[in-house]
């Protein structure tokens, strides 16, 4: 009974925080303008890469290469949005709206509150993903060959991927608790590191060997490779860094790293929130 109550209460916190996050993200404009703003950025990102391929390779760009980059770019929409969304909450609540102290003293689980706030950006990422797929189907020779048998594995790995970036978002959120306002560049920066290391728009094998070792230890890299293999219905993609590693092994690595991230995010978040409280900077504003 107590467990059920706790779960219900946790779900309520996440739901309320998600609703608040959605209002903050969307209520500044009427739905039509908000929709345009939401879709125009991912569409432009996609077009940048398409035109880079068109410029460098012309008509000779292989379908395998285009499919490879397209899937990476689409999955990355979730990575960027969720990481950015969760880590920005501290700056919004603390520096902009100056309400963080009221949230801190309210009877909600802070960790779950931040998870909930991330859901608003997850929805935006979902919309952007759909727009990208439609644009991809128009501009690119996409070949989605996923078999029915692969759907459950894909759904499971996708869920693991999403959950893992939520935990990474919490870790960044914890760091921003002790950072000044300028730390808002951190989420962009970390996303940039993942953009370069995880083989989003080019194979990891294009990186120097020492960087490949780091790349192949990041959960997002596993998530991308699994998604590509299952969507394209192949045992290996053009990324030689993963040749010889089975899809099952990648799913196992993704699951294990997600569990590690969860444990670390909980410990790290509570440590950093205690540190911020000890330093008296939970509700500081840094307008310089």
């Amino acid at each position: 009974m107590a467990v059920t109550d706790t779960l219900k209460r946790s779900a309520k916190v996440v739901r309320s925080a998600a609703w608040l996050g959605w209002q903050l993200e969307s209520n500044w404009a009427d739905p039509a303008i908000f929709a345009i703003i939401t879709i125009i950025r991912p569409l432009a990102s996609l077009l940048i890469i398409i035109f880079m391929f068109r410029f460098a390779l012309g008509a000779s760009a292989s379908a395998d290469l285009l499919n490879f980059f397209f899937i990476g770019n689409t999955v990355y929409l979730f990575v960027y949005n969720v990481l950015f969304g969760i880590s920005q909450v501290i700056f919004e609540d603390r520096e902009h709206y100056e309400v963080i102290k009221y949230i801190y003293i309210s009877p909600v689980n802070w960790y779950l509150y931040f998870i909930g706030r991330g859901f608003a950006r997850l929805i935006i990422a979902g919309v952007s993903c759909v727009v990208s797929i439609v644009a991809g189907l128009i501009f690119l020779p996409l070949k989605f060959n996923m078999t029915a048998a692969a759907v459950p594995v894909f759904a499971f790995s996708f869920l693991l991927g999403i959950v893992s970036i939520f935990f990474m978002g919490i870790i960044m959120c914890a760091l921003t608790l002790v950072m000044a306002r300028h730390g808002n560049m951190m989420s962009e920066s970390i996303s940039g590191i993942f953009f370069i290391l995880c083989g989003i728009i080019y194979p990891i094998s294009a990186l120097p060997v020492w960087l490949q070792k780091i790349s192949t230890a990041i959960p997002i890299s596993y998530w991308l490779e699994i998604s590509r293999r299952l969507i394209l219905n192949t045992d290996q993609t053009i990324d030689a860094a993963w040749h010889g590693v089975s899809t099952a092994d990648l799913v196992y690595r993704l699951g294990f790293s997600t569990a590690v991230l969860f444990a670390f995010s909980v410990v790290f978040f509570y440590y950093m929130s205690m540190l911020a409280r000890a330093k008296g900077i939970i509700d500081r504003t840094t307008s310089y």
Partner: peptide, 17 residues
């Protein structure tokens, strides 16, 4: 330093081609 990372990523795209 960190905003330079996406620039490097785009350079790697051409390099991979």
């Amino acid at each position: 330093f960190f905003p330079l990372l996406p620039i490097c990523a785009f350079a790697f795209v051409y390099k991979s081609m």
